[in-house]
Computed example of a mutant assay.
Amino acid sequence: MAEMTDTATQPIDKAHLRGWFELPFFELLHRAHDIHRRHFPGHRIQRSALLSIKTGGCSEDCGYCAQSARHHAHSREPLLDTQTIVRHAAQAKAAGATRFCMGAAWRAPKEKDLERVAEAVSAVKSLGLETCVTLGMLSAPQAARLKEAGLDYYNHNVDTSPEYYGKVITTHTLSDRLRTLEAVREAGIKVCCGGILGMGETREDRISLLALLAGLEPQPESVPINQLIPIPGTPLADAPPIDPFELVRTIAVARLALPRSYVRLSAGRGQMSDELQALCFYAGANSLFYGEKLLTADNPDVAHDDELLARLDLQPE
């Protein structure tokens, strides 16, 4: 049985992770909650808002994504102008978000588009919000330009295990993603990097995914845990959903393996009951996406989230 240690200073391997997954459910939650409280005292939740600033038309074939031009589910909208982005950011801040995330569906941004995004980053930063973007793959000079513009976080998920990756995506490799993360780190930008559950992967794949995330040096500051939202017209439209208690176990093991990271309940929260979300928060999730839309998918409305957090005595950061 896995021992109780402060995992912030312990090397994490698959054997550790497997042992945690195999703990009795409530023992695992107890351990995860204890580690969470050591590193995040108090009962606080970080709230981020996410806006699609350029939708659809992506050349990649990610099997979960409605924005791929290769699937039958995609819609297309051009890159928003800075004024529109800032208006959405101001609304998100007024609703209580502290971080504003901007997503654009590209394999990699062209230089003229990157300049427009950099302008938007600077404008959003001036509102007093943390800034985050996800734009696909970046070169080192592009990452440096975003840092210069004031970018705080770059999101680039590894999605799934190295072993399962090729069954979900074939137009780029996991190594391509890791090179972007390296460029982001070298530019001095914080990393937001997580994965997607419920794409047909096994528990062993989830163990391998968390081992990859925990082994990044340094570990990601923010780790979004997404549940697949099956979208008609995508290759994973008929993927079976992950068992809710397996989701909670994965959150708990993520907390143990990544003790200082913000673990975010991301896509798929609209399909979760309040009770399931409460279990995830107890297991170590301490961040959520806030607002009615996540790129192209629905999300719980702000009023419902405010009510849920109040019922759970969770305070916003």
Rank of each mutant, 00 (worst) to 15 (best):
L181T: 08
L181P: 06
E182D: 15
E182I: 02
V184K: 01
V184M: 03
A187F: 09
A187C: 10
I189E: 05
C193G: 10
C193L: 12
C193K: 10
G195V: 07
G195K: 03
I196R: 00
I196C: 05
I196K: 02
I196F: 04
L197V: 11
G198Q: 03
G198L: 07
G200T: 13
G200K: 11
T202E: 14
E204T: 13
D205P: 07
R206A: 11
L210Y: 02
L210I: 15
A211C: 08
L213N: 05
L213V: 09
A214P: 07
A214W: 07
L216T: 02
P220V: 08
E221V: 00
V223S: 03
P224N: 11
I225F: 09
I225L: 15
I225Y: 08
I225S: 06
N226R: 01
Q227L: 15
L228K: 08
P230V: 09
P230R: 12
I231W: 06
T234V: 02
P235K: 13
P235H: 12
P235W: 12
L236A: 11
D238F: 02
A239I: 01
P240E: 04
P241G: 07
P241F: 08
F245V: 04
F245H: 12
L247F: 14
V248Q: 01
V248K: 00
R249I: 12
T250N: 04
T250W: 04
I251A: 03
V253I: 05
R255M: 06
